[in-house]
Amino acid sequence: MALHPLSDMEVSEIRAQLHELKIEHRDLDQVISHLIENPPPDDLLIRRLKKRKLLLKDRILQLEQMLIPDIPA
């Protein structure tokens, strides 16, 4: 997806970002599950957390795509 090959430093930075985002995504999943299983659930908070989780998932996918080298067609 990148117009130029990524440097080793850029790849390392992307991998570090991915690691942090995946941890946050996992943590949000645990919090959401806990809130749902232990009433009374705060529906607004759960919706906000789920939205944040989806945004994180999208960003994770974007970063992972940046790490995949372009293959000429």
Results as ranks from 00 to 15, higher is better:
residue 29 D to S: 11
residue 42 D to G: 08
residue 21 L to P: 04
residue 63 L to T: 06
residue 22 K to A: 04
residue 48 R to Y: 01
residue 15 R to H: 10
residue 49 L to E: 03
residue 30 Q to H: 08
residue 45 L to Y: 01
residue 45 L to E: 14
residue 24 E to L: 10
residue 9 M to Y: 15
residue 53 K to H: 12
residue 12 S to P: 00
residue 12 S to V: 00
residue 71 I to P: 00
residue 54 L to Y: 11
residue 25 H to F: 03
residue 36 I to A: 07
residue 42 D to M: 05
residue 33 S to R: 02
residue 61 L to D: 11
residue 27 D to G: 02
residue 71 I to H: 04
residue 34 H to T: 11
residue 7 S to G: 06
residue 71 I to W: 06
residue 47 R to T: 04
residue 12 S to A: 09
residue 24 E to Y: 07
residue 14 I to P: 06
residue 18 L to R: 02
residue 56 L to F: 12
residue 52 R to C: 05
residue 19 H to K: 12
residue 7 S to Y: 12
residue 44 L to K: 02
residue 34 H to D: 07
residue 21 L to V: 03
residue 59 R to N: 12
residue 22 K to N: 09
residue 12 S to M: 09
residue 10 E to K: 11
residue 66 M to V: 09
residue 16 A to E: 09
residue 25 H to D: 01
residue 41 P to H: 05
residue 28 L to R: 01
residue 18 L to H: 03
residue 54 L to A: 12
residue 44 L to R: 02
residue 2 A to Y: 04
residue 12 S to C: 03
residue 60 I to H: 08
residue 28 L to D: 00
residue 72 P to R: 14
residue 32 I to C: 02
residue 38 N to I: 06
residue 42 D to F: 01
residue 52 R to F: 04
residue 71 I to Y: 08
residue 23 I to W: 13
residue 4 H to G: 00
residue 36 I to F: 02
residue 12 S to H: 06
residue 60 I to K: 05
residue 56 L to R: 02
residue 48 R to Q: 08
residue 30 Q to N: 12
residue 2 A to P: 11
residue 21 L to S: 07
residue 46 I to Q: 03
residue 12 S to K: 13
residue 20 E to V: 08
